[in-house]
Computed example of a mutant assay.
Amino acid sequence: MTRIVVVGDVGGCVTHLAEAMAGVVEDEDTVVVQVGDLVDRGPDSTGVLRFVAERLATAPRRWIQLIGNHEEQYLDGEVFWPEPISDEDTQLLRSWWLRDRIRVAAALRTADGEEFLLTHAALTVDAWNELGAPVTAGTAADLLNTRPEELLRDERGPLWAEAGSDVYESWLRAGVPPPFGQVHGHSTIVDFPTRTWRCGERIRQRSTVDWDARHTVTRIGGARFIGCDPRHGRTGAPRWSPLVFEGATLLG
């Protein structure tokens, strides 16, 4: 059992990442899981990649890097972001992918026995069924880490799905309870600066928000779906915190 710290989308905001990780990465009993979208938007994508590269080089078992859609675009040459990262940074991302330094998914069990699948954008019911309807978070992570290409490029797949309209609504309509909880970045059901909701009423009724930490929790069928994208944008969120699981266990 250990302390697992989940970091949402960084988006080129290296100062915010470094500040959040101060005192965390040095702790040998702490594992960091970053859920993707390291690059684009913010002022220093190169700085973010260099920060992560150091962690992967010096403590690879204590930094688990997941892939987001903003990393995936640089792997296949179909870049959608209008201000792409440098060729050198692109090659670094590709080398991480080829050397299995970047995963699609991770899984954990909390001290209370609750299981969570961690991906960039979360699994919809259709994506879950396409994986064979795994009943544990660890199995789902293992299947995703085989890199099912068609699913990863699907607009409602685990790198692209929208939290409210795609993920949560699909599970509300499914008629079966989610077999495990999920933690994701990528999108959110609220607008943090204005403290307003960006989802339908039945999702809102099931959700709570930590406006300072910039986390949302939506309960569906006994499972928790936790959004941890702080929405840093161009300049970084004025206040935010990683998601912390004390006494948790990594699965797989």
Rank of each mutant, 00 (worst) to 15 (best):
V6R: 05
V6E: 12
V6F: 06
V7C: 06
V7N: 05
V7H: 07
V7S: 05
V7F: 12
V7L: 13
G8T: 14
G8H: 12
G8V: 15
G8C: 13
G8R: 12
D9V: 12
D9A: 12
D9Y: 10
V10Q: 13
V10P: 08
V10F: 11
V10L: 15
V10Y: 12
G11V: 07
G12Q: 08
G12D: 08
G12I: 11
G12N: 04
G12K: 04
G12V: 10
C13H: 13
C13A: 08
C13L: 11
C13Q: 13
C13V: 11
C13K: 03
T15W: 07
T15I: 09
T15L: 11
T15D: 15
T15H: 12
H16D: 12
H16A: 14
L17P: 07
L17W: 10
A18T: 11
A18V: 06
A18Q: 15
E19A: 15
E19L: 07
A20Q: 10
A20T: 09
A20G: 10
A20S: 15
M21H: 04
M21G: 02
M21Q: 10
M21L: 15
M21W: 03
A22I: 07
G23L: 07
G23E: 08
G23Y: 04
G23N: 06
G23S: 03
V24N: 06
V24A: 05
V24R: 02
V24I: 15
V24M: 01
V25L: 12
V25W: 03
E26M: 03
E26R: 08
E26P: 00
E28A: 14
E28D: 14
D29Y: 06
D29L: 05
D29V: 04
T30R: 01
T30L: 01
V31K: 04
V31D: 01
V32W: 02
V32P: 00
V32C: 09
V33W: 09
V33G: 04
Q34G: 03
Q34R: 02
Q34I: 08
Q34W: 02
V35Y: 06
G36A: 09
D37A: 04
D37R: 04
L38I: 08
L38M: 13
V39G: 04
D40F: 03
D40E: 10
D40M: 02
R41Q: 08
R41Y: 12
G42P: 10
G42K: 06
G42V: 07
P43G: 01
P43W: 01
P43N: 06
D44F: 05
D44Q: 03
D44T: 08
S45Q: 04
S45E: 02
S45C: 05
T46K: 09
V48R: 06
V48K: 01
L49A: 03
L49H: 03
L49Q: 01
R50Q: 14
R50W: 03
F51Y: 14
F51I: 11
V52R: 07
V52Y: 05
V52G: 09
V52T: 06
V52D: 09
V52L: 15
A53P: 00
E54S: 13
E54P: 00
R55I: 01
L56K: 11
L56V: 07
L56N: 07
T58N: 07
T58E: 15
T58P: 00
A59E: 14
A59P: 00
A59W: 01
A59N: 14
A59H: 12
P60K: 13
P60H: 10
P60W: 11
P60V: 12
P60I: 13
P60R: 11
R61C: 04
R62H: 13
W63R: 10
I64H: 11
